[in-house]
């Protein structure tokens, strides 16, 4: 009744439609790779780690050689600087003690100490549309989905997948990322959304709020994921249109994502703090 070619064409069209439907469902669900991601991490992440560690070792030897040449000259200069800095350090220690006493006097609550685990970045997303990292700590180290990832420079992102010894981190620059944030000085609130490229958007910032270029953006802690007061970036551009209730604000993240080698995963508030 039907020719073989006809059946084949119908089958291919059916498969194509099924594929588009599956991809549509997958795109609207952020945790769509639940089964495959840990498998892929198990299979390739150890090799990524090995390769990254080897390259890091080669780079450190290379840098070490050049450093050695300049170190001798710098040594003399540094010795005199150390003497001056020691003097300054004494002063700072005094100030630190004074600060501690003042805080307790004013009943300022210390920021909660957090339980963190350091992890090495073993791989980065090859995709040009999505921004993720692979780190060498997983569920065996207490890492779980939804935990924030930070570095001293600021917020990196959050864990979206975790296998036994590896985890995948969604960067704040990814368009699927959102962080509830504040302008540090004016306390103007908004949601920091990834722009896909190097910049982020400070979305839903009220038009009447004062936001200027160079202002620091920090996490508000209201999203329940990122701890309050973590630095995210600085405002690089502000645009107020002729209409609308929000203003368009571009933020340059403080974290150098291209140079990230180690990160800290925030496991939760430290027991007893």
């Amino acid at each position: 009744m039907f020719s073989r070619r006809m059946v084949l064409v119908v089958a291919v069209l059916g498969l194509l439609l099924l594929n588009i439907a599956a991809l549509t469902v997958s795109s609207s669900r952020p945790d769509s790779a639940e089964g495959a991601a840990p498998l892929a991490l198990h299979l390739t992440a150890p090799f990524q780690k090995g390769l990254t560690a080897t390259l890091g070792w080669i780079r450190s030897i290379w840098h070490g050689y050049f450093n050695l040449v300049t170190t001798a000259e710098e040594n003399e200069v540094l010795r005199s600087e150390v003497a001056q800095l020691r003097e300054q350090l004494n002063g700072y220690n005094e100030l630190k003690l004074l600060n501690g006493r003042m805080r307790s006097l004013l009943s300022f609550k210390e920021a909660k100490a957090r339980n963190m685990v350091a992890a090495m970045v073993t791989g980065k997303d090859a995709s040009l549309w999505y921004r993720t990292l692979i780190i060498d700590k997983g569920t065996e180290d207490g890492v779980a989905k939804g935990q924030p990832v930070v570095v001293p420079e600021g917020i990196v992102g959050q864990v979206i997948e975790a296998s036994g010894r590896y985890a995948k981190v969604l960067l704040i620059t990814d368009r699927n990322s959102s962080v509830d944030a504040l302008a540090q000085d004016t306390r103007a609130r908004g949601v920091l959304k990834g722009g896909g490229a190097a910049e982020c958007r400070f979305a839903y910032a009220n038009r009447n709020d004062t936001i200027k270029t160079g202002q620091r953006i920090v996490s508000s802690g209201l999203d329940g994921v990122f701890p309050k007061g973590f630095f995210i970036g600085t405002v690089s551009e502000v645009h107020k249109g002729v209409s609308g209730i929000f203003q368009e604000v571009a933020v340059t993240p403080s974290v150098p994502f291209d140079k990230l080698e180690e990160v800290l995963v925030v496991l939760g508030p430290e027991a007893g703090s």
Binding site: V12, L16, N19, A22, L23, S26, S27, R29, P30, S32, A33, A36, A37, P38, L39, A40, L41, L43, T44, A45, G123, D125, A126, S127, W129, Y130, R131, T132, I134, I160, K168, L170, D174, N176
Partner: peptide, 24 residues
């Protein structure tokens, strides 16, 4: 496709779809 999808932050099936239909 499964390996690349698993390692990427893309929705699962993104690379699998691209590679499969290119191959086909």
């Amino acid at each position: 496709g499964v390996l690349v999808d698993g390692l990427s932050g893309s929705p699962f099936g993104f690379y699998l779809t691209s590679y499969f239909w290119l191959f086909f």
